[in-house]
Structure formats: C-alpha cells, structure tokens
C-alpha cells in the first residue's frame, strides 16, 4: 500500500528546510524558478486536478438506518460523457459507501476496499468492518495522499450501522471528516442540505420519508445542477442489511419552467 507512506520511518525533522549554511528559498518565490534550480523531483507529475467527475452525493439518517443516493453521470469537464457511472457501493452487511468527485480515483479506492473485505472474510472469524472504522481509514488514506500533494480528488459519504445505531459520516479530498444526520457534497451542499436539515430538525423521519426526501433533493439538483443527471442509484442500510436498489429515473416536470421569467 504505497499511499500509506512509511509510517515507521517518518520524514526527517529538517524536512523541506534550507540546507545547513544556505538560504531558505521560500516556495512560490519566483527566484526559485528557472533552469538549473530544479531537482528532478520537482518534475514529478501529479494528478492534481480531476478528469472525469461526478457531482453530488446525498446521505440522510432516518429512525432505523441511513439512505444514500447519487446520480450516474460522469462529466468530462462540461461534457456529459459517461451516463452509467454507479457510485453507491455496498461494502459489507453494515456499510454503504457513496462517492462524488473524480471517478477514476473512486474506482481505484473501491478496488482496495473490496480487497480489504475479501481479506477480512478469509480470516473467517465472523467479524465485520464497521462504518466508523472505514470512515476513519478513509480519513487517513485521503490525508496521506493530500500531504504528498497528490490527492484522491473525491468526497466520500460513509453510511452504516455502528453497534445497532445508524451512522453517517463524510470525508473530503483533504481528509476533513465529520459526522452528521444529513450530508450532501458538491453543489448539493448548497441546494440539498437546507431541505435535508429542515426535515431532520422536524424529526420523525422513517425509511419511506427519507427515501422520498432524498429523491426530491435529486430532482431539485437535476433542475439546477448542470452536472446532474436524471438516472440515479439509491441505497439503504438498516439493521437488516444493505440494499442498493436498481437504477431509477427522475420524472422531470418541465411544465413548471414557464413560471420562471427571464429578466
């Protein structure tokens, strides 16, 4: 696992600093550029920007579990390039994982997570990875990558059942992690969270209500987010296990459009 770094041998104390007896060249100072002043390592190529991207992923807790939903569009800049990019994944019977951001980075980490689960099953002790552990693990992986200035350009939403209680947490590409009852990433942070938080504050959400609300959020996003799509995937995790439903489609109601007047 190259991305984990060498945890037993951390970087030396005087790392990135001036050579003893020399002046320190502050990073970003123009005098540090130019031919001759570049060690070969400066030319290392980094995937510092996303290529095929996906947009919002929504997570919402209800009384007995958590629901996650995301559309299936992979955008290539402003081009709606790939229309079948599922990004809600069942990890095991306790965890449901959603993703938004660079799709290649998701596929890379998805393979690693799937291998983790296989390795765990091979031990055969009946123990299962719990959502808070996966959430924490993702934090470390993403933080280590960002510290190498070679980030995995993704937001992850981890849903699951932690010791009988619903769990919902998010991690972004820097390793910023938090838990909440309602999470929406990307443009959904601006357009879906107000709807979600209103329902959470009111309380008494059940599975049906949560699903309906999440679908409503996807519809709102489809109307306004230019990178959103009508086909989506929805997953639910309860104490009974994880289900990722078949792809579904929003039925858009464009007849509303005449009410919006351009000035």
């Amino acid at each position: 696992m190259a991305f984990m770094g060498d945890t037993m041998n951390p970087a030396p104390l005087w790392h990135n600093g001036p050579t003893p007896g020399a002046f320190y060249n502050f990073p970003g100072n123009s005098s540090t550029y130019g031919p001759g002043s570049h060690p070969a390592s400066d030319f290392k190529a980094h995937s510092a920007s996303p290529i095929t991207t996906t947009t919002t992923v929504i997570g919402l807790k209800f009384d007995k579990g958590v629901v996650i939903a995301a559309d299936t569009l992979g955008s290539y800049g402003s081009l709606a390039r790939f229309r079948d990019c599922p990004r809600v994944m069942k990890v095991n019977d306790l965890i449901l994982l959603g993703n938004g951001g660079d799709y290649a980075d998701f596929q890379y980490l998805k393979d690693i997570i799937e291998q983790k689960i296989i390795d765990e099953k091979c031990i055969g002790d009946g123990l299962q990875l719990k959502p808070r552990s996966l959430h924490c693990w993702l934090t470390r992986v993403l933080y280590n990558k960002r510290s190498k200035m070679d980030p995995l350009w993704s937001n992850y939403v981890v849903a699951g059942i932690q010791d009988g209680e619903p769990f919902l947490g998010a991690v972004d590409k820097l390793g910023t992690a938090y838990e909440d009852a309602a999470i929406a990433t990307g443009l959904g942070a601006y357009m879906a969270t107000p709807l979600l938080r209103e329902a959470v504050d009111k309380g008494g959400l059940d599975e049906q209500g949560a699903k309906a609300l999440v679908q409503k959020c996807l519809e709102v996003l489809y109307y306004r987010d230019a990178r959103a799509f009508q086909r989506y995937q929805l997953g639910v995790v309860t104490a009974d296990g994880v289900t990722v439903e078949d792809l579904a489609e929003i039925t858009p109601r464009w007849e509303l459009a005449h009410m919006i007047h351009m000035k």
Partner: peptide, 27 residues
Amino acid sequence: MLNVSGNFPEYAVPGAKQVRFEPYADN
C-alpha cells in the same frame, strides 16, 4: 513547481482554467 500561467504567462491559454490543489482548508 513549474506551471505555464505563473512562469510563462505569454503561453497561457485564456479560458482553460486549471484547478490548483490547495492542501489547506479554513474550517
């Protein structure tokens, strides 16, 4: 790090904006 718009502004393509990675966030 070398980048076109910072060091060779005359070669920068207008409109094609690259997202630079920023390892810090203010939370």
